[in-house]
Amino acid sequence: MNGLVEWGSVLVLLAVGFVFGGRSERRHYKSIQNRETKLLALPLKSETKLQVSEIEDVLLVTGSVAIASDYLKTFIANLKNIFGGRLSSFESLMDRARREATLRLKDQAAKWGADEVIGFRLETSTIRQNGIEILAVGTAVKFKKLST
């Protein structure tokens, strides 16, 4: 009787994780792709040297997001710990978090009216064992508008 309850609850949680987690992931990816297309015009660079010397203003911009992984992903990750190998269930999690954080940074820069974002850096940290937080940092610059 005990075995049935234990197995049953694990399977239910896995199913919930798979269905709802998968759905929320697909929705998130759609939104990410949308916003990336819109913000494609704003260049993002990791270099620290500026090509243009006529700068009007500078602003530190950041974007961050904390995402939790669903039950199925965590379960698979724990099992993978036994055998080793590529943990593909977490790859999409990291990818989404990174792109989301970057988009939020670009969003902040675009709202400020930036022409470019340079000195771009990404940082990762973990939350509560199976969630991650990504922080994207950059310097937004406004070029001097040449008046004719």
Binding site: S24, H28, A66, I67, A68, D70, Y71, I127, R128, N130
Partner: peptide
Amino acid sequence: AGLKDIVGGELKGYTELLE
């Protein structure tokens, strides 16, 4: 956040906290 551990998704509370 504990509930989100099952369904996944953004942890808005944590994002705010970190901001």
